[in-house]
């Protein structure tokens, strides 16, 4: 089966034409990618799509009331909404350093969420 994707590895946004297995839906091959990242993106996007999670949590005692956070690695795409929801109930105390762990093992993914800035 053929499907069309747009590579999100960089701003170039290559249009990818992906061949997948009729029966299992798994990745076979890709064309249209300008670089190697396109082929690994296509395979991952078909077999187990992932996205970085970025959101904010509440912070007390800082000049702003929200602290930007980011997942340390991309999350399975299906876990994204749950992970963002989980951020809403978190409040941290200042000072926070960029890279500090804000939440561990988010949405059962084993992936930590870290502070994206010092505040």
């Amino acid at each position: 089966m053929e499907s069309k994707l747009i590579c999100i590895s960089c701003p170039r946004g290559c249009e990818l034409l992906v061949q997948t297995d009729e029966r299992t839906g798994s990745f076979i091959s890709v064309e249209g990618n300008a670089c190697i990242r396109g082929s690994s993106f296509a395979a991952a996007e078909i077999n187990h799509p992932e996205r970085m999670m970025t959101s904010v949590v509440s912070i007390r005692g800082a000049k702003h009331c929200m602290l930007p956070v980011i997942s340390r690695r991309p999350l399975p795409k299906g876990k994204l909404a749950e992970a963002v929801r989980a951020m809403r109930s978190i409040t941290v105390e200042a000072p926070v350093k960029e890279g500090d762990v804000i939440a561990e093992d988010i949405a059962g993914t084993g992936i930590d969420v870290i502070a994206a800035r010092s505040l």
């Binding site: 970085m52 970025t54 930007p68 980011i70 960029e98 994206a116 800035r117 010092s118």
Partner: peptide, 10 residues
């Protein structure tokens, strides 16, 4: 690297 805006600024 794929950084967020605040990480890039930091």
């Amino acid at each position: 690297k794929q950084l967020s805006g605040p990480q890039y600024a930091e």
